[in-house]
Nucleic acid binder design. Structure first.
Lengths: 123, 123, 123, 123
DNA sequence: GTGGTCTAGACCACC
DNA sequence: GTGGTCTAGACCACA
C-alpha cells in the first residue's frame, strides 16, 4: 500500500505521511476508510512502531486522520482538502531536489531522461 | 559560486560536495584549479568552517580534491572522472525524489509543471 | 577493549579505527556483534564523542561497520575482508616508521631490542 | 643525502632533524662539516624553505648545528653526544608504532616479516 | 537510549 | 595565510 525508502534523507515518518496523502489523492483511500493499524503497518514496512505512531499522531493533529480510541484511525472528512495543501509541500520538495540535481551538474536532458524512466517503470 | 539551501533535509556538507562536482561537470573548475579556502567559503556560505572542512576532507578522500596543508585545496586530475560516477548518484537521488513525489499524490502534469518552473527560474 | 595513546602523532580517530580492525583481526569481534555506543566508548577512552563519531562514521563508509540510527553500530559481514586489506596499510605504516628510525641513525640491533621489549611488555 | 616521506604523519621538520642525526650517527657527517644550505636542501627535498629553516633553527637551538651568520650551518662538536640522546626519542617513536601495529591486528610474525623486508631493501 | 549534523572556538603543522 | 584535529555542547531522527 505504502512504499518507504529507508536510505532517503527524508525522515521515515514524513514518507509515511506522504504515502497516506498520496493514497487519498489517488482515490485509493476515501473519507471514512480505516487506515491500517500501527502495528500492522510497522510490520509491513519493517519500520519501528514508534515511527509509524509519530506519523499517525501528526496526521491526526492535522485533521487528516480521525482517530477513535479502541477502534483505530480513519480517513477524516477533511482529508481530501488537506491533501491539496500537502501537494504544495511535495511540489516544493521536488523543486528543491531538482535545484540540487542541477547544482550537481545534471543537464536538463539528463533530468528529462530520469523523469521518463521513472514514468516508464511505474506500474 | 556554490549555492546552499539550509532548509533542505540534505546535509550541508553533501550540498557543498555536490556543488563542487557540478562546477567541474560544467567546466567552470578544471584540474589544477584552486578551490576557495575553507575559511573563505565558510564565510561566503555563512556555514561553519568545520562543515566546509568536512566536505573538503571527504572530497579529498574520494580523490576529487588534492589538499595540501598550508597551501590550499586543488581540483585533482582525477576529478572529471569522479564527477561522472557522481552524476549517477545525483540521478538516482533525483529518481528517489520523483518516486516520493508520486507517492505523495503529485500527478505527472504537476511534476512537469515544477520542472518547467525551475527551468524558467534559472539564470 | 581499545587502547589509545593521546601523545602519538597518529590522530585519535585513526587509532580508534585501528583498534576495531585489530579486534576483528584477533577474532574478539565478529560480524553481527554490536560495537560499544559512541557515547560509551568516548567515556571509556576519555575522548570527545565527536572524535569517536568520526571514527565510526569512517568505518561505516568503508563498509566495516553497519550503523543504524537509534540502534547502534554493528560489525558488518564484510568487516573481516576489510581487515585484511587494512593489515596491508598497517604493515606499510610500520615499514615507514622503521625506515624513519633507520634514517635517524638507529641500528638494526637497537630496533630488534625495541621489538623484544614491546613483545615482553605485552600482556 | 636525506630522505623524506611527505605522506607520513610525522612532521617534515622532524624528519629532517632525524635525518641529520642519522647522518652523524652513521659517521657520514662529522663535527665541522658543512650542512647543505636551506635553499639547496629545500630544493632537493621539494619542501618549503620555511620548513627546512625550522629544522635548522631547532637543531641550532639544541646545539647540534653551529650556525655562522653569512657562512651557513655546520655540525657542532657536541653533535655526536646530542645524537645519542636523540636515539632515545627515535626508539620510543618506533615503540609507539609497534604498539599501534599490534593493536591493528598485526601478528608478531607479520612484524618480523616487515622488519626483514626493510632490512633486505636497504642499500 | 542510539547515531547524525551542525556550530563555536581552540590548538597544531605547514607555507 | 592554509588545511587538520580535537573539544564542547546543541538539536534532530529514530528505537
Amino acid at each position: 500500500m505504502i512504499r518507504i525508502d529507508a536510505s532517503s534523507p527524508v525522515p521515515l515518518y514524513d514518507q509515511i505521511k506522504s504515502g497516506f496523502r498520496g493514497l487519498v489523492a489517488k482515490g485509493l483511500l476515501k473519507p471514512g476508510d480505516a487506515a491500517p493499524s500501527i502495528r500492522e503497518l510497522s510490520a509491513k514496512l519493517k519500520v519501528n512502531p514508534n515511527t509509524v505512531a509519530r506519523a499517525f499522531r501528526e496526521l491526526s493533529v492535522e485533521g487528516f486522520f480521525d482517530s477513535r480510541r479502541g477502534e483505530g484511525s480513519f480517513i477524516s472528512e477533511a482529508a481530501p482538502r488537506r491533501v491539496k495543501s500537502g501537494l504544495g509541500e511535495s511540489s516544493s520538495a521536488l523543486a528543491d531536489s531538482l535545484k540540487l540535481a542541477r547544482r550537481s551538474g545534471l543537464g536538463w536532458d539528463d533530468i528529462e531522461e530520469v523523469v521518463r524512466e521513472i514514468r516508464k517503470e511505474e506500474p
